[in-house]
Design a protein around this nucleic acid. Sequence first.
RNA 1: AGGGCUAUCGCCAAGCGGUAAGGCACAGCACUUUGACUGCUGCAUUCGCAAGUUCGAAUCUUGCUAGCCCUGCCA
Length: 565
Amino acid sequence: MSIEEIKKDEEQATEVISKNFIEQIIEKDLAEGVYDTVHTRFPPEPNGYLHIGHAKSILLNYGLACKYNGKFNMRFDDTNPTKEKIEFVDAIQKDIEWLGADWEDRLFFASDYFQEMYEGAIKLIQKGKAYVCDLSPEEIREYRGTLTEPGKDSPYRNRSVEENMELFEAMKDGKFADGERVLRAKIDMSSPNINMRDPIIYRVAHMTHHNTGDAWCIYPMYDYAHPIEDAIEHITHSICTLEFEDHRPLYDWVVRELEYSHPPKQVEFAKLYLRNVVTGKRYIKKLVEEGVVDGWDDPRLVSIAALRRRGFTPDSIRKFVELCGVSKADSSVDYGMLEFAIREDLKLKDTRIMAVLDPIKLIIDNYPEGQVEYMDADNNVENAELGTRKIPFSKELYIERDDFMEVPPKKYFRLFPGNEVRLMNAYFVTCTDFVKDENGVITEVHCTYDPETKSGSGFNARKVKGTIHWVSAKEAVKVTARLYENIIDEEKGVYNEDGTMNINPNSLIVTEDCYVEPYIKDAKAYDSFQFVRQGFFCVDCKDTTKDHLVMNRVVSLKSSYKLPK
RNA sequence: AGGGCUAUCGCCAAGCGGUAAGGCACAGCACUUUGACUGCUGCAUUCGCAAGUUCGAAUCUUGCUAGCCCUGCCA
């Protein structure tokens, strides 16, 4: 079966999956003629790097647009220059492109709409729906009331339209310092929904904006700006996370008061949390600053950049997000689900080669000294399209240390004195002897081979229970393997009682003396391979001082051999 | 005079009044030139709890309970 056929199968399988609640909303809107098309967007604030949670939102929005033949916009929600930087604008675009969400020519900046937002504010003032407030930040908080008590009206609430116009102009013209005046929507100070208690819609900030420079010294607040951004772009379904549910009445108020026709509709879904990893920008930042990880793309993190460096593919992340589903229930997905997604994606794409991570020498006593044979091997036994390769075989090999045991437990099928196993793609060998050093550590294993059992020869006079992998000691390439575990300890949870994070000290293990088939020599950065019985690895970089390839373990294989007690 | 939202297996998640889909994880068996993969099998008499309506309720009603979000001039 070719990869295409397999993919087709998978697509047919996913069609059976029932529609999520957002799809149901969209189909209802389409059926009732509320909208005649679907237009979504992903609106990050450029104040940090994207992570797996954002991937869910990106893929959801983009996926919906594709599914309903609609459009998908990329938009930077850059309404607060105090937090935003141009470097994040670039990094975010790169990550979204890599994920495969295509905004075509629709890349927008909220800041490009500042003029229209400003005109909207004037419209509100003239309708008597907005006023300039002189209260200090502290006073505004006091007047707002609490969760259980209503707020009270600002003394400036009933200024005349003329006065408000003058004052708002003065704000715009830089006559006030930061924090001195704000523009507020006039809604209801006694609303049980705090967001409706005359929310601030414009604040003064004398600050250079990465896109508009010094053109403005007043900036719109999210609650006011976002519905306008959506309306200008003719977004139909403005999809965001659950914490904005309480803001929806305000969202609707803005598009209604500004009299947009066919206004967008906000739909909320639950964020994606992953167990045993650090999600959340501020905590990732803390790990980076404290040097626990070596940067925002450290492969133990779940930022998009980290996942990319670790060797995750865009397809695997899409698969994972699809697997998780979309709902309104708070949830925390098992890390195993992510691992499943990447294994599933890579297993037919990657060349499966032999690598020895913890080497011990295997010497074939009856094999001619100096002889090198080239054995044929399928690059991927399940996918013939990947072709075959030649592997050097000789008298001295490396095998995995745990593929030999002096005293084997029950059901151990690998090498032990007197036992015969298959060397994958080569011959049967029988263990004859082994050597220990003065500390009792086994240093080499000896065996004999049977020339008749060569791989591919059709030999079937006898069978062996075990097959082990190997590399030729002389021809093998030495690499550094970086093995990763969850950065947070399974049982203990992310945070300790004192607020510190509970870091797993074994989350990164670096092993330098690993040997891989010479096949790896031509590998380039981000190329990935399946190492037989060791999982999937991805080329991270080349350590030029040692001429080593550095390989990141993407994910380990499910290993089902457990030593009996 | 608080408001909004959520609750179906260890973890996700369908279900929309007709008698509990699916995936991950886990377990067992088979197969195997990767103890992988693959295949097969098993895994919720019960849907947060309690009443009610109904021939029939995870689905409707009422009342509880638990969790999450909201008192930034952040998004």
